[in-house]
Amino acid sequence: MNPFIKNKKQLSIFITAGFPTLNSTTNQILELQSKGVDFIEVGIPFSDPMADGVVIQESSSKALSNGMNMDILFDQLEAIKNDVHIPLVLMGYLNPVLQYGLEKFLIKCKDVKMASVILPDMSFEIYERFYQSLFEKYEIPMTFLITPTSSDERILKIVESSKKSFVYLVSHTSITGNKQTFQENLLERYSEIKALCKNVPLMIGFGISTKNDVEKAHKSCDGAIIGSAYIKSLIEKRDLVRELTP
């Protein structure tokens, strides 16, 4: 069964593990769960996050200087695994995963009940050639990013491999935290993509920050993912989830 749900207006939050403080990861997850967030992406900080804007870049370097690393992160996730009832997704750049050891990483993911993994700099082709068999061995479903300009053929191929996860639609071509979402000319494309996804949930992210954005996301996709805006709200000590939900 797919833990990610189709046709329900979902809200997902991306957190940077170890930000703002090293031990804040677990409390944030439990708090977001209690506020009704549908699933959470736990970001593994990396020194060179090339697809991220300033907000997530800075949260990553702060997390690293706080001492966050893969061992600590898995310990933290282990401590709360029986208290978390919503899907958790580990998201990060490939290099820290490769250094940790992909097999060891997948075993740990299974131990701490990760629902899926997102590695934005690992393309579908590289996954197929080198890593797919290990992911399947440990039954950890991958989630892949697509963009409005991805070809239908490619989207269908990714949908086929995402039956136990979801498809992550990048709202527009830009790094994270860039507000140019829901340009009129893209709305139709979002709907086409949703049709291509059939039973696989389609979640949209990148540049989503306001209640209005979330509402728009729910018109064309199954869920909205918020990252930079959440990190920013932490810094500004605002309750973003409350602002976004009715």
Binding site: M50, A51, L94, P120, D121, M122, S123, I126, F144, L145, I146, T147, T149, S150, V170, T173, S174, I175
Partner: peptide, 11 residues
């Protein structure tokens, strides 16, 4: 080698 880039740069 290879191309380890986000989907955003694929095209």
């Amino acid at each position: 080698g290879g191309a380890f880039v986000p989907e955003l740069l694929r095209d």
